[in-house]
Structure formats: C-alpha cells, structure tokens
Simulated scan of single mutants.
Amino acid sequence: MEKLQKALSKARQERSGVTREAPQKRAPVAPRAARPPSEASDNFPEIWQKLKPLDPDPRHLSANRIMTLNALPEANPFDVLRTKIYLLMRQNGWTRLAITSPNKGCGKTTTACNLAVGFSRQSEVKSMLFDVDLRRPGVATMLGQQPEHDIRELLVGEVAPEDQMLRLRSNVAISMARRPVSDPTQLLLSQKTVQTFDNIQAQFEPDVMIFDLPPMLVTDDARAKLKNVDCALIVARAEQTRMSQLDVCEREVSEHTNVLGVVLNNCRHMGAEEDYYGDYS
C-alpha cells in the first residue's frame, strides 16, 4: 500500500504543471449542525416510513462478501472506511458519493453494498444506495433481492421513489435495477434524471447518497454521473489494477469531482496491527 501511495503522489506531482480546464462543481453545501442521537430518529421525514422493508438473508450476504450487517470482526475494515467517509463528507458539507474503479472486477459494488449495509447500523444517519452501473447492475444480486420496479422507471419518472426503493432497517434506502439498460449515458445525462435525484434528496433529506457507478476506463457512463456528485471513491484491486490505469482513473475522476480517496481491495498482505480485531475477537 505504501508503494501505491508513493506512486500516486509521484504521478500527481508530474502532472501538477499541466493546465486543465477547471471542472464545474456542484454548489457547495454548508456543513450540517451536529444532532444529538436521541433526536435523530425524530428528524426522519415521514416518507421513509412508506418504503417497503428489505430483509436480506445473512447467509446470502456473507456468500457475496457483504459482511457489515452485524458488528463482527469481518466487518471492521468496512466500518473503518464507512466512518472515515462519513466524517470527511460531513466536514466538507458533502452528501453525494460516487464509487467507481479503473476496470471491472475491482470490487466497487461489493464496497458500495458493504458501506450501505454498514450505515444501517448507524441509526441516526440517513443513507441511500443507488445502482447506476446500468449496463451491468449488481446490487440486487448481491443483496439477494428482486425489486418490483426498476431504477430506470424511477429515473424517468414512471414510478415514485417510495414505490421503487426498499428500506434496510430504519435508515437506509436502496434503489436497485432489475435488468441492464442499453444506453445508460443518455439516461444519466438526462435533465429528468438530474431532477429526480435532486427531488429525492429534497424529500428524504439523506446524510449520505452512495452511487455505484460503472468502471471509468470501460465506458463513458461514469463521467455522465460524476459531474452531479460531491466526491468519488476509487476502488482498485491488488495484483490486478495496473498503476498506469489507476493514475488515469484518478486524473479523469478529478476532472469532474473531488477524489475522496483510493481503496486497495483484495490485499493479501496485512501487518499484525491490521489484523488486531481478528485476533482480539
């Protein structure tokens, strides 16, 4: 991981002298005032109660590497990531987080699902997960669900959010796809889609909105959505993602939004300090 960070730092320095057109950013949002946990549930808009409950099978989640439903040692790496993300986004007044990767197979959907499910254990935090990897949607499969309505129907206004999204526990809303979309870029660039997400944010008042995006270097779908988020997390896979691919991915993401960080997935080399909670438990 240290070598990865050094290589990324060197690449950033080498391109620091290159002049690029400044990306258009969404208007900044003022940081929210802290709320006492006892008051948090009282501040949930009534529309949350209209969402159909989602009750995933823990065995199915575990088989798909979704480890964060309960506070177990296996969930700790994602819990740490969840907390870091939440604190950084709150500090900057950000709400919308995109998760992408350089190429397929890096684990971005696994990461997105683990974060969303992990947030369900933080009852005072309202979170949402949207599967917008529309060519190859995977959230429904990972969670073992088959939603009644497709996310495409939500984006084009054919179905209301409260009829399309499912609610995990009391505080996580999840919007899933039933089938692939043939031309996702057109849908994601549509002003109707932009307005739909704006309306959802206004109605549900989430603290965190997570968007599972397609890989950056495969299609142009991710770029169509990045311009409408506050920040992005890049997921790379150890022994698979090349440094050159990660550098290009980071550069292209930074042209559209803020890079929140890079996650190295499937890393087999852990120090004793990183395995502390496994030994402790």
Rank of each mutant, 00 (worst) to 15 (best):
F130L: 13
S123T: 13
H149C: 10
M128A: 14
S175K: 00
Q146L: 12
D133N: 15
L154Q: 06
V139T: 09
P184A: 05
K126H: 09
R178C: 13
R135Q: 13
R121I: 04
M128R: 00
Q146A: 14
D131K: 04
R167M: 08
V181W: 01
A173E: 07
M128S: 12
G105Y: 11
G107S: 08
G138Q: 09
V139M: 02
Q145K: 04
L187M: 10
E124W: 10
S120P: 05
M128H: 05
S170W: 00
L115G: 01
N103C: 06
L115E: 08
G144N: 03
Q122A: 13
S182I: 11
D150G: 12
G105A: 09
R136S: 11
V132E: 01
H149M: 11
C113W: 01
A112Y: 07
V139Y: 00
M165Y: 06
R136M: 12
V125M: 08
R179Q: 14
G157N: 05
S127K: 00
L189E: 10
I174D: 03
S182D: 14
F130R: 00
A140W: 00
L166E: 13
Q164W: 00
I151L: 14
E158P: 00
T141S: 13
G144H: 02
L187P: 06
L115M: 09
L166F: 04
S123Q: 14
V125N: 04
L154M: 11
A173P: 08
D131C: 04
P161C: 10
C113G: 01
R178T: 15
N114R: 04
I174A: 03
A160K: 11
G144Q: 06
A116H: 05
A140V: 04
V156Y: 10
K104Y: 07
F130H: 06
G157S: 08
A160M: 11
A160N: 09
L155C: 11
T111C: 13
A177F: 02
V172F: 06
S175L: 12
V159C: 10
L166G: 10
E148N: 12
R135T: 04
L129R: 01
L134H: 01
M128C: 13
K104T: 10
S127D: 02
E162T: 10
L129I: 03
A112E: 09
L168G: 04
V156C: 09
Q145W: 01
L155M: 15
S170F: 00
V159S: 11
K104H: 07
V125S: 02
L189C: 07
Q145V: 12
T109A: 01
P180I: 01
C106G: 05
A160S: 12
L188P: 08
S127E: 02
L189Y: 08
L154T: 07
A112Q: 08
K126I: 03
H149V: 12
D150W: 06
E148A: 14
D133M: 05
A160E: 14
E148Y: 02
L154E: 05
R152V: 14
E158G: 06
R178G: 13
F119N: 03
E148F: 01
V172T: 13
R152Y: 13
